[in-house]
């Protein structure tokens, strides 16, 4: 089966994604070999669903996005692997969050991963809608996530856009 990448996308959005090619400066391949056996590896998850821990972390800033529609909160949150589903909240204005709140595993399958592999103690969440320059994601957020993943001893990362 070849997945239809535009099956669930409104038709008018398709030109924003299709045939756009790589970002400038991102044309070449990147590659970090997965050197270990999976059974001996520690794996991390990253969701772009705008998930955060309701009583312990600030929400992603959707108020500013409402007043500046081209802007998206570029910060990130560390999500404890031990967090219970009812402790998690979602701040993402581009999706219906009902199913994720009902079962966060559909965006951040922390429980499923713990049954399949050794996992980090804190996974990662970002909010996927970003301004076109991606400036802060590139200069601040991505390096901070890399540092976090190294501190967590992650041998690999599974990313899932919302």
């Amino acid at each position: 089966m070849i997945v239809d990448s535009y099956r669930f996308l409104p038709r008018s959005f398709r030109p924003f994604y299709e045939g756009r090619g790589p970002f400038r400066g991102e044309e070449g391949p990147v590659w970090a070999p997965f050197a270990r056996r999976l059974a001996d590896s520690r794996i991390a998850l990253l969701t772009s669903a705008g998930m955060y821990v309701r009583d312990a972390q600030p929400s992603f800033d959707v108020d500013r996005e409402r007043s500046h529609p081209e802007w998206g909160d570029p910060t990130w949150r560390a999500i404890p692997a031990s967090a219970r589903p009812e402790e998690l909240a979602v701040a993402h204005l581009h999706i219906n969050d009902e199913d994720i709140l009902a079962d966060p595993e559909i965006a951040l399958p922390m429980r499923a991963l713990s049954e399949l592999a050794d996992t980090v103690t804190e996974h990662v969440s970002v909010m996927g809608y970003q301004d076109r320059s991606l400036r802060e994601w590139r200069s601040v957020t991505a390096p901070a996530i890399v540092t976090h993943l190294r501190e967590q001893g992650a041998d690999g990362l599974v990313l899932a856009p919302a």
């Binding site: 990448s5 535009y6 996308l9 991505a142 890399v146 993943l149 992650a154 990362l157 856009p161």
Partner: peptide, 19 residues
């Protein structure tokens, strides 16, 4: 592109995506 930056820093990545 976030996956690329993390991969370039030496951490292997896979993107699970509907697109």
């Amino acid at each position: 592109v976030l996956a690329r930056w993390i991969e370039a820093a030496g951490i292997p990545t896979v993107v699970v995506t509907m697109m």
